[in-house]
Design a protein around this nucleic acid. Structure first.
Length: 277
DNA sequence: GAAGACCTGCTA
DNA sequence: TAGCAGGTCTTC
């Protein structure tokens, strides 16, 4: 489910709901793999009694800094989410001070909670966060020209830039008019510039819309208020194969790039030089 | 790189 | 019933 904008939305809502400052009084783990490689016992022992100091986000990781000096790093993967009320797929429940229960649900059980003394052990492997100042045009240019890889899988690689997933890569490439299979090292300066701006813009708009919802297949993204997000309606290409391109009216096409479903405009996003016109 | 593994739920 | 899904990790 979540890419950068959804994780950002959830982190903000946890803060707005006053989770920061609360003490974790109880821990229930219903799906032990969620906290692997720690045992449920070790995980609970490390978390119980700690205070939630700060909730932030790096890439797709939610970072919960604890009063103990340790950090809880939460990755929602495909279907993780939070609620203050129980639901069918609760995998972990934190009992907070003042009787608040924070329920982590995750139907597909891919999500992971890591308890670490040094969060850099995980965050250090990430590239710059796509919405941070550390992600620069120069840096993107260098990363693209340093390799010869298809641009889409490169942008999905969290060690290059952190936060993009399948939806926003397709959206950004459409916005920048770049074919998803273009080789990174072949992109011209003007294209890289368009791409850089498109990534920032697409993510900023999505954050201001409080994240996205799939609608196709599993529409289980819900923010803490139970809203499904508004970005879906505004997707320019994701999930829109077969409909006209919003820029040129050409029918959007679907293909598979690096094993990921991909939608693009065959007219706006060309692989090679135009053969005519 | 590519394919499989990890999982469940929804749609065709 | 098969096939697909917003993500990563491991193993060829």
């Amino acid at each position: 489910m979540p890419e950068l904008p959804e994780v950002e939305t959830i982190a903000r809502q946890l803060r707005e709901h006053g989770v920061e400052g609360r003490r974790i009084e109880s821990v229930q783990v219903h799906w032990p793999r969620t906290v692997a490689p720690l045992s449920v016992k070790a995980f609970a022992a490390g978390v119980k009694g700690a205070t939630v100091d700060r909730i932030s986000r790096v890439g797709k990781w939610m970072v919960v800094s604890l009063g103990s000096g340790w950090s809880l790093l939460i990755h929602l993967r495909m279907s993780g989410g939070f609620s203050f009320t129980p639901s069918a797929h609760d995998r972990l429940v934190l009992g907070l001070s003042d009787g608040v229960n924070l329920h982590y649900r995750d139907p597909r059980k891919f999500g992971r909670w890591r308890l670490l003394e040094d969060p850099q052990r995980i965050l250090g492997a990430l590239g710059p966060d796509a919405l941070s100042r550390a992600f620069t045009l120069r840096g993107l240019h260098g990363a693209l020209h340093a390799r010869r890889r298809q641009i889409k899988p490169l942008l999905l690689d969290q060690s290059i830039v952190a936060g993009l997933g399948n939806i926003y890569v397709d959206e950004a490439l459409w916005e920048a008019r770049i074919h998803p299979e273009r080789i990174s090292g072949s992109l011209k300066d003007a294209e890289i510039c368009r791409l850089y701006r498109a990534i920032k813009q697409v993510l900023r708009v999505a954050v201001s819309n409080r994240g996205t919802s799939l609608g196709v297949g599993m529409s289980n993204y819900r923010d803490l208020e139970g809203n499904s997000g508004g970005e879906r309606e505004k997707a320019k290409v994701y999930g829109q194969a077969g409909t006209p391109c919003k820029r040129c009216r050409t029918t959007l096409q679907r293909l598979v790039v690096a094993q990921r479903g991909t939608t693009f405009c065959p007219s706006c996003q060309r692989l090679g030089p135009r053969t005519s016109g």
